Simulated scan of single mutants.
Amino acid sequence: MITSYQYRLKPTKEQIKIIDDTLNMLRCQYNYQLGQRFEWLEQNRCSIDRCSLVICHIPELKDKPNRFSQQASLTQLKKDRTWYKGIHSQVLQEVPKKVEIAFDRWLKGDSNGKRSGKPRFKGKGQYKTFTYPQFKKEHFQKDKIILSKIGTVKIIIHRQIPDGFDIKTISVTKKADGYYVTLSLEDKTVPTVKPDFDANNIVGIDVGLIDFIVTSDDDRIAAPKFLRKAERKLKSAQRRVSRRNISSNRRKKAIQKLGKQHKKVADTRKDFHFKTANNLLKKYDVVTVEKLNIKGLAKTRFAKSINDAGWGQFISILTVKAENAGLKVIATNPNGTSQECSNCGQKVKKPLSQRVHNCPSCLTSLCRDLNAAINIKNRGAHDLKAQIMSSMRSL
């Protein structure tokens, strides 16, 4: 079993300077190695239908930079730029790995074939995390942790590491309100939780902007709108930043306060998502949700409200917690869940402004969101039955 715990660090002023310098040097190396890959791509690509092979001169193709070739160049880097010796070698070797992941996801896509956007060069302050891929457990004792090239740093232990778990990797992250360390823990003796659920204890949920979720049992949770409620404070903090002189200390302090305000909104939203997911999984064994294109929806005129709701983060948390508990989350086709009658299946077209579903065929009248939640539940039950039948045939 693999899990992760995050703790807050309390570094000294000297240690803060070392961490900040390390992040800045890693950022520069990230940009340099990403630039190498862009340069290789630009020099080695040619459109066959637009370039004459007879007239044009074809330059000698260069070897493609990869993770291992860029890691091998780090030895010479430390000779040419001696200040890089202040960074642990394995921390520096993680940079080419990050570059390769970002570059390959752009060109090839991930394991599901889904491609990401073109990776960007990171500006000052945008590189926030570095990782130690190997860590000795004895370097973490009581309220202190030993970080190579940084020293012994005080750490706030708000919960103890479970017995039997070994620390595999650690990551140091700079956030708006301070520095944190994330421990990746593993215990091979703890088995992976196998699915053990009651297929009949199922619920469908419809996410929305007025009600955050409406269940097929007509339970409703109002959308908390954390960003909307904090807009006044955020606007005031942003105004202070814009009024300060560039590169002044007062501007840096204003930016820090603005970052803390944004982090508070994000943390409050995440806490709400965890509590909502816990309450659902305590009551139901199977939760059915719509497989929404959230990125596409976030480009509409409702972008701010959709991002404020954080549907993607909620569904991700719900899925992970269900897997850890041996329960099930099913994503179904969202097409027509609001238009289709949950009682007779008749399609009843209605604009988004119409919040009540009135079926002319069976005379069913109920809330639009409740009607959608029932349809989501029915589709999820059908998909779950098909999955169970398929697994039984394979046995």
Rank of each mutant, 00 (worst) to 15 (best):
S171E: 05
V172I: 15
T173S: 14
K174R: 15
K175T: 09
A176N: 02
A176E: 01
D177T: 11
G178P: 05
Y179G: 05
Y180K: 09
Y180L: 10
Y180E: 06
V181M: 11
L183Q: 01
L185V: 08
E186M: 07
E186G: 02
K188Y: 06
V190Y: 05
V190F: 05
P191R: 08
K194S: 10
P195I: 11
D196M: 08
F197T: 00
D198Y: 04
D198R: 13
D198T: 10
I202M: 03
I202R: 03
V203Q: 02
V203F: 05
I205G: 02
D206G: 12
G208S: 12
L209H: 07
D211E: 14
F212L: 11
I213Y: 04
T215L: 07
S216I: 09
D217E: 13
D218M: 13
D218L: 14
R220P: 00
I221M: 08
I221C: 06
A222N: 09
A222I: 09
P224A: 00
P224I: 04
K225P: 04
K225T: 05
F226C: 06
F226A: 06
F226L: 14
L227G: 02
L227F: 12
R228V: 00
R232W: 14
K233L: 13
K233W: 11
S236M: 12
S236H: 15
A237K: 11
A237N: 13
Q238L: 10
Q238H: 13
R239D: 11
R240H: 15
V241K: 07
S242L: 13
R243L: 10
R243H: 10
R244V: 01
R244S: 12
S248C: 12
S248G: 14
R250P: 02
K253I: 05
A254G: 06
K257C: 03
L258E: 00
G259V: 01
G259S: 09
K260Q: 14
Q261F: 10
K264S: 07
K264Q: 12
A266S: 14
A266W: 06
D267N: 12
T268H: 09
T268C: 12
R269P: 01
D271W: 14
H273F: 10
H273K: 08
H273A: 09
F274W: 12
T276R: 02
T276K: 02
A277M: 08
N278K: 15
L280H: 03
L281A: 10
L281Q: 04
K282S: 13
K282L: 00
D285F: 07
V286S: 04
V286I: 06
V287I: 13
T288P: 01
T288W: 01
T288R: 02
V289D: 01
E290T: 05
E290R: 02
E290N: 06
K291P: 00
N293I: 04
I294V: 15
I294G: 04
K295L: 03
G296E: 11
G296T: 13
